[in-house]
């Protein structure tokens, strides 16, 4: 029972990171029909920005403060790079989906190459407070503190996004734009601003996801290819949840995290089953698409 509870908690933390990685990707595709292969880069740069800031700040500030500043750096780096990507590379290519895919792949490859050239292929160690390595004891349960952070971040972002999408004018514009961009324009709304905003929001969440992925699942290590690894699962979450649906991304992230974590724990020790967690996720994708080809929440946001 204890193992089951521990495992569920760690699956929830993994789901939270997947949700952070996938929600921006889903919004970007839902509103703009842009398959953004540079989203993994936003995650990687978020983690590198946090590493750069936290390793250069004076230790007198205290580890929690330094880490909090690192979180801010990851969010800002993801948001800025994503906003610039939309303005400079995506905007001139609206209506040309193949060119958009190629340019985002090219950007990702080029930037990862630059990171490899600048920082080397070795992973860098991110300074995090010792508290992250400890666990909170709750009865017989030992719940890693880092998982709490990931879970809290996922919940805060989900609630914040829901509030933004349902209570603000830009949120309404984005939800309407996912349904019918032309009609939004015909009502006098400049959808281009909403496009940039969605990229900025998606990039901010991706930056945070990159940092949390390093802290919670990557042994506090930052590496040039980490975002691309996470991007694959983010795409799977988006497709299972339904393109453009935030609630779908949340539910799909939960499914993927639980299936992957439980498969890894119970099956991966068997001979030839080392990758069973990843395989299970792909099987889940196939089952959902067979049952609901547009994903669980396809067509809603």
């Amino acid at each position: 029972m204890t193992v089951l509870a521990d495992l569920t908690f760690s699956a929830l933390a993994l789901s939270a990171v997947y949700f952070l990685a996938a929600s921006g990707l889903s919004l970007i595709y839902g509103l703009m029909d842009v398959l953004n292969f540079a989203h993994g880069l936003f995650m990687t740069l978020g983690a590198y920005a946090a590493w750069d800031l936290t390793t250069h700040l004076a230790s007198g500030l205290g580890a929690p403060t330094i880490f909090a500043l690192g979180v801010g750096a990851s969010i800002i780096a993801g948001a800025v790079v994503a906003g610039l990507t939309e303005l400079l590379l995506i905007r001139p290519l609206y209506g040309r989906p193949i060119s958009q895919i190629l340019v985002t792949i090219g950007l990702d490859l080029a930037a990862v190459g630059l990171l490899l050239g600048g920082f080397g292929s070795n992973s860098l160690s991110l300074p995090v407070p010792l508290w992250f390595f400890e666990a909170t004891h709750w009865g017989a349960l030992n719940l890693p503190n880092a998982d709490f952070v990931a879970l809290a971040a996922g919940i805060v972002v989900l609630v914040g996004l829901e509030w933004f999408l349902r209570r603000t004018r830009y949120g309404i514009i984005i939800r309407a734009g996912v349904e019918n961009r032309d009609m939004v324009r015909a009502l006098g709304v400049d959808v281009g601003r909403a496009f940039t905003l969605v990229f900025v929001l998606g990039g901010a969440m991706a930056g945070l996801a990159g940092l949390l992925n390093s802290v919670v699942f990557n042994g506090d290590l930052v590496s040039p290819l980490q975002g691309d690894g996470l991007l694959i699962f983010a795409f799977i979450v988006v497709v299972i949840g339904g393109l453009g649906s935030i609630r779908g991304s949340a539910v799909a992230a939960l499914l993927v995290g639980v299936v992957q974590d439980f498969s890894n724990y119970y099956l991966s020790s068997h001979p030839g089953m080392a990758e069973i967690g990843n395989l299970s996720v792909v099987l889940l994708l196939a089952v959902v698409l067979e049952w609901r080809p547009r994903g669980l929440f396809g067509g809603t946001i």
Partner: peptide, 21 residues
Amino acid sequence: YVPEDRDVFSALTVAENLRLA
């Protein structure tokens, strides 16, 4: 503009459709 087939935003409430305009 009132388009053919209305093109109301089905996922939005009536109030949100109006607010958007």
